[in-house]
């Protein structure tokens, strides 16, 4: 059980970073980005392709992939903040569903639908706890998720840039009237989350099931984690991601429970949502 849980921690760190990205997006630019992990997946696939077919060294290919993921995300952000500036969160998010579909099928076309021969960026064990090996990937993703969450929180609460971002998210029109550049800021948020998700997927993908669909669907456990924080709180999003990863790892150890592992994110999502929305009997407050 413990071995499974620790093995699941790498995935947990991945969920946590993606959950932090989803939370940032939902808070700052009013969108639940269903294509969050698909963008990262696409960047990573391009990196793999570059290293195999162009012969770029792994690190250089990875950097190009991350830049591409960032640019893709920024482009999508630009489209949404140009044409759907005043739309509600549902419509804005529905666009990302279409983009998710688009990215998965593009990657099928360009790279086929088999898992990619990733070169691990990180390899090998970091240390051993009670006879269980903890890999470097696990350590890095978990540390990264915590650092990102703490960093974003500090940025949002302690700097004037963060203040502008929060003003933008809560009162977009008022913020614009105060000469806060709404669109560049929104696009910047998209770019940063694109960068973070491509980065973390580059690190974890070599040691996970890494076909296009699995990587793109990481958005499901990630939203389960983000929901623990109600798409508002970064700390709970990180905890949610780590716990979910460990739980899945632990359940995976028992053969008879393997189907449960697939349904775990779904059950978590339903449970958390029903609890948090239990008083939302009506569609509108009045």
């Amino acid at each position: 059980m413990l071995q499974g849980a620790l093995a699941g921690l790498a995935a947990g760190g991945l969920y946590a970073v993606l959950a932090v990205c989803l939370t940032l997006m939902s808070r700052l630019v009013r969108v639940v980005n269903f294509s969050q992990s698909a963008t990262g997946m696409f960047g990573c696939y391009v990196a793999v392709w570059l290293s195999i077919h162009v012969g770029l060294p792994t690190w250089a290919a990875t950097v190009v992939g991350i830049v591409l993921g960032t640019a893709l995300s920024a482009l999508l952000g630009w489209i949404i903040s140009t044409w759907l500036a005043e739309a509600d969160i549902g419509t804005r998010s529905a666009v990302t569903v279409a983009v998710l579909l688009l990215l998965i099928s593009l990657s099928f076309i360009l790279f086929g639908n088999k898992p990619q021969p990733f070169h691990p960026v990180l390899d090998g064990p970091a240390f051993t706890v009670g006879g269980v090996v903890v890999s470097q990937v696990t350590v890095v993703t978990v540390v990264l998720s915590v650092l990102i969450a703490v960093g974003c929180r500090t940025l949002l609460t302690k700097t004037s840039f963060g203040l502008e971002l929060r003003a933008l998210s809560e009162r977009p029109t008022t913020a614009e009237l105060l000469a806060i550049p709404a669109k560049p800021l929104a696009v910047a948020v998209w770019a940063v989350t694109g960068l973070l998700s491509t980065l973390v997927i580059s690190i974890v993908a070599p040691s996970q099931s890494n076909d296009a669909t699995s990587l793109a669907m990481l958005v499901v456990p990630a939203s389960a984690a983000a929901l623990l924080g109600g798409f508002r709180r970064l700390d709970l999003a990180v905890i949610g991601g780590l716990v979910l990863g460990m739980a899945q790892g632990a359940v995976a150890q028992v053969d008879s429970l393997s189907v449960v592992r697939y349904f775990l994110p779904f059950l978590v999502i339903v449970g958390l949502l029903l609890w948090s929305q239990r008083k939302e009997v009506w569609d509108v407050a009045r």
Binding site: V32, I89, G90, A94, L227, V270, L274, V281, D283
Partner: peptide, 11 residues
């Protein structure tokens, strides 16, 4: 019955 819009999409 309790979830709408984007939450339902996630579910």
């Amino acid at each position: 019955l309790r979830l709408r819009g984007i939450n339902l999409a996630v579910v």
